[in-house]
């Protein structure tokens, strides 16, 4: 195991490739994903459904269905190779070093245990403390995520809470062991619009206060802009553009990123027509040759069908995977 120094990134992902066996044959859900994440940094992962955002998150925790999944590449967390961890080491890594907030809190909580018990159980597991201390920690966490009358809420079952409160409790659970990396997998998708904003503001505040690195998955560009230092845009299992949130969202280089931005309400001005990207995302079992976006791309050239473009630098800390990069950026 290599010695970890402060200058190295917290998380370093190289050529992460995830394949699934399906009834219709093998598919590649993630194709050579590479990125780094510094301590305390917030990375926004944007893309349509099926672009591989959730698969990336689950691969980082290795919670993809074992029998049907093949993973290659490398995931280094503080210099440790996550893909090489033994079952025991993996269990200590999950929930302790890296914790995850799931999309649907109503499905991610065990329905037959109280919320307090589920938080305390995780704390006891990783911090080897007494149950009393763990419940005290659970109470502290519920207060931190601003659940009113937190003490009595400890004894609530998940179904006794509202959707927004359940997601707050899920955040409390994820942060209870002070993870160095927080994975938030579309944490507000299942919530009402008004509650969504509250939860996002809460997450942003907690991130600033506690300083853990965060990967925030969303298909909402506005949310990504609100919370991220850097963003990565995914399409059909590949990262097509990555860079600082300000740069990418202001002047996207990749044609898909441009399309995605102009197709959101946030991107368009009042009275302006919202532009949709023509066509549909590709079927992962039947990928087009070359650039996966080329069949939908207004700027595609014949050559786009022949090569899968590698990420190329487009300025400081920015990259885009398009052979027309440079000529595209306005």
């Amino acid at each position: 195991m290599s010695a970890f120094t402060a200058r190295e990134p917290l998380l370093s992902v190289r050529d992460l490739t995830v394949g699934f066996k399906t009834d219709r044959g093998p598919i590649t859900a993630l194709d050579r994903i590479s990125f780094d994440l510094g301590r305390g940094e917030v990375l926004g992962l944007i893309g349509e459904s099926g672009s591989g955002k959730s698969v990336t998150m689950r691969a980082l925790l290795r919670i993809l269905p074992q029998k049907r999944t093949t993973i290659s590449g490398s995931i280094l967390m503080e210099g440790r190779d996550v893909l090489a961890l033994k079952r025991r080491e993996l269990a200590s890594y999950r929930g302790n070093d890296v914790a995850m907030i799931f999309q649907e809190p109503s499905l991610a909580f065990d329905p037959v245990f109280t919320v307090g018990r589920q938080i305390a159980e995780t704390v006891v597991r990783h911090k080897q403390c007494s149950w009393d201390a763990a419940y005290a920690r659970a109470l502290e966490m519920l207060e931190l995520v601003r659940i009113p009358s937190a003490k009595s809420r400890l004894d609530n079952y998940p179904h006794e809470m509202s959707g927004g409160m359940r997601q707050r409790a899920m955040i409390a659970l994820a942060l209870a062991c002070s993870p160095k990396l927080l994975l938030a997998d579309e944490p507000t998708t299942a919530l009402d619009a008004t509650v969504q904003i509250q939860v996002i503001l809460l997450l942003r505040e907690l991130q600033k206060e506690l300083g853990m690195a965060t990967i925030f998955v969303t298909h909402d560009v506005g949310v990504a802009a609100e919370i991220s230092d850097r963003v990565a845009v995914m399409y059909a299992g590949r990262i097509v553009e990555m860079g600082s949130a300000a740069d990418v969202l202001k002047s996207p280089a990749h044609p898909y990123a441009r399309g995605l931005l102009s197709s959101t309400i946030h991107g368009a001005m009042a009275g302006e027509r919202v532009e949709a990207i023509p066509g549909m995302p590709p079927d992962l079992a039947n990928m087009p040759s070359g650039c996966a976006f080329s069949p939908r791309c207004a700027m595609a050239m014949p050559e786009c069908r022949n090569v899968i473009p590698a990420p190329a630098s487009v300025g400081a800390g920015r990259s885009a995977a398009c052979i027309r990069v440079g000529s595209v950026a306005a």
Partner: peptide, 19 residues
């Protein structure tokens, strides 16, 4: 899904079995 979530919390197989 909650069983995956229990795994993601790092619970042991015995603990998950009890759930």
């Amino acid at each position: 899904e909650f069983v995956t979530a229990l795994e993601a919390r790092g619970l042991t197989q015995t603990q998950i079995f009890l759930h």
